[in-house]
């Protein structure tokens, strides 16, 4: 054959005109939805900051305010359930703003035919989770949709909390040189859930890391107020949390692959399924950017707390490659840790 072999390309697809599952993945599609559909109409400078929570100055008090909806399947899983997740998830969004959580609302969307015992178990779990924080569920709502129009049980929780005097957390405060601290091994929640999902079942002792982080955050802030910003890497995993911070702070982030704690079970499952733990969800971890001088004290405070026992220094904010998260491999090379367009997809082989 002479001349280059002729290869061709498909026509690109036009912009998405329907919601696909990837819009809920916490990755680029979710970000597009915010940018293109919500922000232009809501026009709120506070919302435009896109923090996990809004911090509102009211009569001298700084109030943190956030909401989250929970659509997990299965409803009950090893290490947690939709009830504890709904309480801890919203509490964690408040805690990431440095706030002490105070009150929650709870909204339920129930599918006709749902076993009341399931709802009772979820409510009991919510009560238990709230008591342990402590936070009070003070208002709520219940709606029922026809059979087939919902997936058993959806829960929305909204939370308010108070940000203590002197605590100020924002990606805008991040500076090159800041240290990146991670509170423990990543990927437990996502893999625990995946292991129980239809079509993928595999046996593991792994449990979700679902836990309220307000206690850990209080311990960190007691060690130093030079914490710049925090995120809990839920959907989209550690990579999405770091990418969000890098983009908002206008800094680069470099992390060390060998410094990131990942449990053997999670690594094994990820190898088998063709997933990367950096993109797998967590429900009881946080990543913090801390001023270099304060990093050691904060790390020690984390390690003294039960939820931060395996905390690690995983990287540094840099003045180079702003907006980009780079990972240094044990081979001495670097690669990009990108935000995924949608959900991670299991590979063919």
């Amino acid at each position: 054959m002479s001349g280059p072999i002729q290869f061709t390309c498909p026509v690109p697809l036009a912009a998405r005109d329907r919601i696909v599952l990837g819009h809920g993945s916490g990755g680029k599609l979710s970000a597009e939805l915010l940018r293109d559909v919500f922000l232009p109409y809501f026009r709120s400078p506070i919302l435009n900051r896109l923090d996990d929570q809004a911090v509102l100055e009211i009569n001298g008090a700084r109030l943190a305010f956030t909401t989250d909806s929970f659509v997990v399947k299965p409803l009950f899983f090893r290490g947690g359930d939709i009830g504890s997740l709904a309480v801890n998830g919203t509490v964690n969004d408040l805690a990431m703003g440095g706030a002490t959580p105070l009150y929650l609302s709870a909204g339920f969307i129930l599918e006709e035919g749902l076993d009341i015992e399931i709802l009772r178990r979820a409510a009991e779990s919510m009560g238990r989770a709230a008591d342990s924080i402590p936070v009070e569920i003070v208002t709520g709502d219940t709606k029922v949709v026809e059979k087939g129009k919902g997936d058993g049980l959806f829960i929305n929780t909204t939370g308010i909390g108070l940000v203590p005097e002197g605590v100020r957390l924002s990606p805008a405060l991040v500076r090159p040189g800041d240290r990146v601290l991670l509170s423990g091994p990543i990927g437990d929640h996502g893999i625990a859930i995946l292991a129980e999902r239809e079509g993928i079942e595999f046996s593991t002792d792994l449990a979700s890391d679902c836990a309220p982080l307000n206690g850990l955050v209080a311990a960190m802030l007691a060690a130093s107020l030079d914490i710049r910003t925090m995120r809990d890497p839920t959907r989209g995993g550690l990579s999405s949390a770091l990418n969000e911070i890098a983009a908002r702070a206008g800094v680069g982030v470099t992390i060390e692959e060998s410094a990131i704690p990942v449990r053997e079970e999670v690594r094994g499952a990820c190898e088998m399924l063709g997933l990367d733990p950096l993109y797998v969800a967590n429900e009881g971890k946080l990543v913090a950017f801390v001023a270099p001088d304060a990093a050691e004290a904060v790390l020690e405070a984390m390690r003294r707390h039960a939820l931060g026992r395996d905390a690690a220094l995983i990287g540094t904010a840099t003045g180079t490659h702003p907006g980009l998260v780079l990972l240094r491999t044990p081979f001495g090379t670097t690669r990009i840790v990108d935000m995924l367009p949608g959900d991670q997809l299991p590979r063919i082989c």
Partner: peptide, 14 residues
Amino acid sequence: EPPECISALVLQGL
């Protein structure tokens, strides 16, 4: 498939 992209050249190392 409309001819457009350079995957041919990529796959040949060009």
